[in-house]
Design a protein around this nucleic acid. Structure first.
Lengths: 218, 218
DNA sequence: AGACTCCTGTTACCGCAAGTAACATGCACG
DNA sequence: CGTGCATGTTACTTGCGGTAACAGGAGTCT
């Protein structure tokens, strides 16, 4: 029978694939998102065509790579979201988990946000269509959807709750992402303070704040 | 005297520059962010080296191009933000202005968000340093700072107000951006509804919502 | 054993886009 | 007239994504 053999082959191929991914990981960790296929192949001790046989094209490799990290991060976030604590604490824990992750591995984070910009084959017509909307990083989309689901499951939002939950999911994730990005660059404060500020924002302090009196002008 | 002459030359150079930018604009509007320098030069009726003389490198051109659109958008946003209305109305008007802009010109929007990914010269060593933090689009950063300033000017946030305002500025902009991006791709609802949902989020409805009872599980 | 197949690996190449060097031309000033 | 100087060109280099085409090695069938 050839099933055992095929299984064997598949197994070895999978192992190979994982090794290649780990090599790619190392390179991306070192060179950032613009790591070249040549560099990755060299790091893995092989040459380009093998990479292409395994992953199709650069987009494929990057997608596979991104999925690993995305899955890992999403697992952490789910844990924080599902902890048995009150809402505010859960929100803060989730924000903190995300920020800790991007703080720990900035290059990986950057790679996840800008996976494969170009990705146009030579013979390819280059997608005349707009392709708008898919522009965002898959990680952001997945986090948004995930959060939306949790919100919709847990909160009573009245009619149109599903729509609302999705808007909020993507909105909150975007808030977290942008604030985290800015914070990583400027480091204007500690992580805990950032977390508290963002939670305050979500808790409506913007709407509750009073107008400033005696400000400049009027 | 050469001042008049220099002025003349500078004037004509500036005119050329503007013409080139308009040509580039047309190409980007058509081809998206991956417009090639050759294509832009062709559209302008000239050849590559002239572009390089004017803008240095692709990053320079893209930066100049981005600045125009960013300035224009920021002007609209400032108008909405400074309108004589109550806070909720101003926030909604600002959100709506932004969303209307990205809805009207998706390619430009996309270009602004992913200006120049690669941008590494052949001989360049490619910035061994991390370069983390600058990864975000300049447009987002500028919007965040702008909003932060308005918040800090107008709201009474107590001690640490400046820090808080900046966090909120970037956070809100990120929320707007991510939600807008997702909305552009999926079009799950009308613009007005999206605006209302986001404003609700900022108004603390997330914290105020009750726990769902009779949900799946517990 | 020998032919067949499949997987792994290589070298050498194509096409394309960024960026540059070197050469040509029009035009003002002395 | 020649000397700058900006504008424009053609032709090139470099580097990267991606692809043929070829070269063993290991199991399989007859």
């Amino acid at each position: 029978m050839d099933t055992t053999q095929r299984t064997d082959q598949q197994r070895s191929a999978d192992r190979r694939r994982r090794e290649l991914l780990e090599a790619a990981d190392r390179v991306v960790l070192r060179d950032g998102p613009q790591a070249s296929m040549n560099a990755i192949a060299a790091e893995a001790g092989i040459t380009k065509p093998i990479l292409y046989r395994h992953f199709g094209d650069k987009g494929g490799l990057y997608a596979a790579l991104a999925q690993r990290h995305t899955d890992a991060l999403l697992d952490s976030l789910r844990a924080a979201l599902d902890a048995p604590a009150d809402r505010r604490e859960r929100v803060e824990a989730t924000l903190d988990t995300y920020l800790a992750a991007i703080e720990a591995r900035p290059q990986v984070y950057r790679f996840l946000m800008h996976p494969a910009e170009g990705s146009a084959a030579p013979g390819d017509q280059g997608e005349q269509g707009f392709d708008v909307g898919k522009h965002s990083a898959p990680l952001l989309r997945r986090m948004g959807e995930e959060l939306a689901q949790v919100i919709e499951e847990r909160l009573d939002l009245g009619p149109g709750s599903q729509q609302l939950a999705r808007v909020w999911g993507h909105g909150i994730v975007g808030m977290m992402h942008a604030a985290g990005d800015w914070w990583l660059g400027e480091r204007p404060c500690g992580r805990a303070e950032l977390v508290r500020s963002l939670a305050d924002l979500l808790w409506g302090r913007l709407a509750a704040a009073g107008d400033r009196v005696g400000g400049p002008g009027f």
